[in-house]
Design a protein around this nucleic acid. Structure first.
Lengths: 145, 145
DNA sequence: TATTATTCGGACAAAAATGTCCTTTATTAA
DNA sequence: TTAATAAAGGACATTTTTGTCCGAATAATA
């Protein structure tokens, strides 16, 4: 809808990892892909990006897997994940695709987009993994179907 | 950012056609592509979609080209163009890509998206080509760069 | 130390989006 | 009626996104 597939999987994966990390469970790619209903190998690739960007932490070998420490769950906001995977064009770029588009030289939709984009950016910058994970934990929200 | 490239070109093209139709000028694909800075042949394809969906009107042969009658400029809202080219997934689909996602069975981002998506939909449903074309005419907005 | 379970990384494959080219069809005007 | 001009439409080409596969690196444990 708004994010790339990769980014959707990335967010879902991160939330699932956070959820499991809440009770100290490290999870494997296989489990993640299963639980968020995503292609395993592709998910693995995306998890690599998340690890390189210090959004999740990975451990190799048996008993290894992915985890997020309690502090990171609070400090990592959705904006960081989105930026790592899709860049920040969602709320930076012009809605009509112009190279240059700003208050001085706006596209016909510029003004109408300003509020929407600001709201989106604000939301992403204020939403932490912890918040999303706890919603899941309580059974209020879902990651599949 | 939010729309496909095809949709961006489609909106820009429609606005340009509307602008020219304001003083009864019919315009060719070549001129349109020039003025909105888009690939000619690809733009032609998109214009076919717009014509099939009765968003613009086309005339073949010499002195032919594209036009929009004054009434259509008012009744055609952006939502119609977006729907014709991208479908309505922008404000219908789940932000995290779940098949099923609604108030009953929401994804973790569902609630946070509701307002943003509603605003977007409302904006698209209320913005007419006439409105955008006149902004251009007065020199307040731009379609290039 | 050998085996096994796991992530990492690179190369490859498939699908979708973007973009091009060329022929056909309609229409105007000389 | 013929030549010229424009959109329509189909086939093709390129690029990007999505997705797969497999060997290498790492670490736990028997």
């Amino acid at each position: 809808m708004m994010f790339s597939k990769a980014c959707e999987y990335g967010i879902r994966a991160a939330v699932y990892i956070a959820l499991q990390s809440l009770d100290n469970r490290r999870v494997s790619v296989t489990e993640i892909a299963e639980e968020i209903d995503s292609p395993v190998a592709f998910t693995a690739k995306i998890l690599q990006q998340l690890t390189r960007n210090n959004i999740v932490h990975s451990v190799k070998g048996p008993t290894g897997g992915f985890e997020i420490d309690r502090e990171a769950m609070d400090t990592v906001k959705l904006s960081k994940i989105v930026k790592a995977i899709d860049g920040d064009k969602i709320y930076m770029g012009c809605g009509l695709g112009l190279k240059e588009c700003n208050a001085d030289r706006p596209c016909p939709l510029h003004d109408k987009f300003v509020d929407i984009r600001t709201d989106l950016r604000t939301m992403l910058q204020n939403t932490s993994l912890y918040e999303l994970a706890t919603g899941l934990e309580v059974g209020l929200t879902y990651l599949k179907r």
